[in-house]
Design a protein around this nucleic acid. Sequence first.
DNA 1: AATAATTTTAGAATGATTCTAATGATTGGT
DNA 2: ACCAATCATTAGAATCATTCTAAAATTATT
Lengths: 134, 134
Amino acid sequence: MTKYEKRIYEIVNQSSSHMTVEQIYHILKADFPSVVLATVYNNLNKLYRNRLINKISMEGMPDRYDRIVKHDHIVCQNCGKLTDIQFEDLTETLKKQFGADFLSYDLKVFYVCPDCRKKLGADKNIHGYTNSMY
Amino acid sequence: MTKYEKRIYEIVNQSSSHMTVEQIYHILKADFPSVVLATVYNNLNKLYRNRLINKISMEGMPDRYDRIVKHDHIVCQNCGKLTDIQFEDLTETLKKQFGADFLSYDLKVFYVCPDCRKKLGADKNIHGYTNSMY
DNA sequence: AATAATTTTAGAATGATTCTAATGATTGGT
DNA sequence: ACCAATCATTAGAATCATTCTAAAATTATT
């Protein structure tokens, strides 16, 4: 592991996770002012290839990186904010239904975060929401 | 609804779903040879804003569009192929744990598709797979 | 130390998506 | 039917995220 790979791995494994490449780049630059964006991409890709970190994809937004420890996410439908949450493990339930083994799963729950609820007005019905959407 | 919006909505709601903007554009061009890519983006965004279609995001790949009827996806970790699947509805389970109402959820299960399993050799251990990953 | 292998760098290139400004079509009011 | 207002479409430039390329620097191997 090179110094860059090591530090990038550390950065991703901090609590304020879900960082974009750009954000990771800025933090890394504090320690190594001469580092270049391509290096961050290279190392993140390598770490991801080796499954040492995780990649989260959200429509429209740049990819984000996350620590590998199993957890789920809630996502604000309005502002896109991503927050960690720990739902009960679904592996067994899904394996039974899938009929075979699988590698992993990714669960995102969409809601409207408190901030957005306030801004949008408590009475307003967001996006024609119905319970059975999706 | 304009003719473009209507046709794009139809296209997305066909079974061979999960199309990229580019693919939708090509199909649409068969009917309306003069249509332009920006129009496809405009209409897909509008349909998505009004929650008439769904957007799927996968790291690296361009966004894909999907019909709104609730279903889940299995994704090949190796080639990225996306297939529909219908797991049992988790709304109630999750709502209980979340402690509140939410809008929807998105569940992706990662596995290695039969084609890739063949190509990679049945014995090979994919990506240092462990059962509790993610 | 010499050579090979790997990483980093800088910047160009690519791909996806949005933006802008002009033009064209549709709709509502009189 | 006419005009204004609104909305959709077009073309192309602009932007943003990401990858690629080739050279330079660093690290590991013999």
